[in-house]
Simulated assay, not measured.
Amino acid sequence: MTTLTMARATTRLMVALALTTLAAPAHAALVTVEFAGTLNGPIPTALASTFSSGQAFSGRYRFDTDAVARPLSDPNWVFYTYVDFSLTMGGFSASATGQAGSNQILIQDGVSGFDLYRVDSTRFTTTPTRVEGLALVRTYLQFTSARDVHGRSLPPGVPDLNDYAFNRSLQLTFGPNPNSLVDSVTMFGTVTRTGPGTSVPEPSVALLLLGAVVGAAARHRRRSA
């Protein structure tokens, strides 16, 4: 078998393998959820020099649609680790990456007739600026519905505020110690907008393989020219 014949046979084999892989189930997608709203009073005295009722906030979080559900001791709860989270209010900002047990999406199914979807963050990527000597301890982005919305499954897209009319809130807790709730204070906000749910599919093995085939074929043509 000549070198040219072997190259052609190899190329045909790679193409066949790539086409077979394309028929496999779709891969996961990375979903981005943007949110925005305003703080509502009263603002704790310790934070009032920096934040005010009616002040706007915005942020986003991302999660993988194939995130693994992890049970808690309470069978009505399950959590999914998110990819990352960020929040901005005026000159204040905070960011976090997903960590099981601290930075995650909590799902509560039908307890007392309520479904709850909560994005928790307690370990931050960079140390947020202290406010009057107080550190950010945790953030809760919470959506609560008085009807069955999602069961125990992580909804695959953006939470629809129409589904969570009972409660759509942001809670921010500050304290002297970023790892403790002792002597902490909390302020609240109302989420008024969510979206868009831009999904970015992960590149499949088939697409990567097809790219390699195209590249190899182009190199072969140049050598043969």
Results as ranks from 00 to 15, higher is better:
2 T>W: 11
5 T>S: 08
9 A>P: 05
21 T>N: 11
24 A>G: 12
26 A>P: 00
27 H>E: 12
30 L>K: 10
30 L>P: 10
32 T>F: 04
33 V>H: 04
39 L>K: 07
39 L>C: 09
48 A>C: 14
49 S>E: 13
54 G>T: 13
57 F>V: 03
57 F>N: 01
58 S>I: 02
63 F>E: 01
63 F>K: 01
64 D>C: 00
68 V>E: 14
70 R>Q: 15
71 P>W: 08
75 P>H: 08
78 V>T: 15
86 S>G: 06
86 S>T: 09
88 T>V: 14
97 T>C: 06
99 Q>S: 10
99 Q>A: 13
104 Q>R: 08
111 V>N: 04
116 L>D: 05
120 D>W: 09
123 R>Y: 05
125 T>S: 15
125 T>Y: 11
134 L>W: 03
139 T>F: 01
140 Y>K: 04
145 S>A: 08
149 V>M: 05
155 P>L: 06
157 G>H: 08
159 P>D: 01
164 Y>L: 02
174 F>E: 03
174 F>D: 06
176 P>K: 03
176 P>D: 08
180 S>L: 00
184 S>V: 00
185 V>Y: 05
188 F>I: 05
190 T>W: 02
190 T>D: 06
192 T>K: 06
193 R>Y: 09
193 R>P: 02
195 G>D: 09
197 G>T: 03
201 P>F: 10
202 E>C: 13
207 L>A: 12
213 V>I: 07
214 V>K: 13
215 G>E: 07
216 A>R: 11
223 R>W: 04
225 A>M: 04
